[in-house]
Design a protein around this nucleic acid. Structure first.
Lengths: 161, 161
DNA sequence: TATCTTTACTTGCCCAGGCAAGCCACAACG
DNA sequence: CGTTGTGGCTTGCCTGGGCAAGTAAAGATA
């Protein structure tokens, strides 16, 4: 058991096991379910939907790729290839940042925004059905608090580690 | 269909947005972080670890592949290929179920169990660090309740849908 | 017993993602 | 001004996963 335990025991107790199993099911089956729905109804992946959504929220629907990658929890090569696909479908345009040629600015086109608007309702409905409907208001609040903490830890992990 | 909203509005309010973003970060970044650690320290993926762990808990360390796939939230082809890799490393053996030749029984070998035991401590430590450490006892309890409900919904989805 | 359906598993093809190496723009230093 | 260094992005190679088609065993029907 290797001495590197930052916490007490090297094993999970029963309650932890249950929580852990539920979390594993969610992180495995939830993206799969979202991907299936989006692929079927819109021909895009859950990750691609997230990229479109994030871009649409930015000023002038424009962001630096590195910033976009960060908010989408993505590595750069992955986002780069998504952008290749999006550009061939005319959903985004890429151009060097005039202020600093190292950055690349991505802008959502009208066609890209339209794709997002088209695919949003069914996707949002799926999210509500799978995540929000099973929970009471109080449970949603508690879930949000806990997940926000874990997400913050994961973000630190990605940047610092 | 469009009209198929099982809940009220077709959009998420601000609180829901925050929860949704945190959940997205977790389902994307958590498997990635677990995979990195396991790949680095043990040369296996998080999914493969889960397969070994599940098999090790069964009676005689033996399960039907279809049952194993279900508890691992996996489709059959995926598990089939994992078993190919495991068999070449002598971590599992496969043989037809004597009672019904359609089923295949997978058994964890001693070497397979040893691999699991070797890789467990660091993996468990990582899980604790990323998931449990950021939370209070009450938050863990709440999180477990909420995730169990969502996981149940997802399981119904996989089977019925 | 012969045929058809169902169920469990495997195989082959295609595509997305990770990683390492390469490329380009800027900054710092002499 | 050259040179070196750093940071952002892209490319190529390889592996893993999804899906649809194929195989094989069991059961059903006649």
């Amino acid at each position: 058991m290797m001495g590197c335990m930052d916490t007490q025991s090297p094993w999970l107790d029963d309650d932890q096991q249950d929580l852990w199993q539920a979390l594993l099911t969610v992180v495995i089956a939830l993206p799969a379910a979202l991907d299936r729905q989006l692929q079927r109804d819109a021909g895009i992946s859950n990750f691609e939907y997230g990229v479109l959504a994030r871009l649409s929220m930015a000023d002038d629907a424009t962001m630096r790729l590195s910033d976009l990658a960060r908010v989408c929890d993505s590595a750069q090569p992955r986002l780069s290839k998504v952008m290749d696909r999006f550009e061939t479908r005319d959903w985004v345009t890429r151009r060097p940042d005039p202020g600093d040629g190292r950055y690349t600015l991505a802008t959502l086109t009208d066609a890209g925004r339209q794709k997002l608007v088209e695919s949003a309702p069914e996707h949002v409905a799926q999210v509500k059905r799978l995540v929000f409907d099973p929970l009471s208001a109080a449970q949603r609040r508690h879930l949000g608090i806990a997940l926000t903490r874990i997400a913050a830890t994961l973000r630190r992990e990605s940047e610092g580690g």
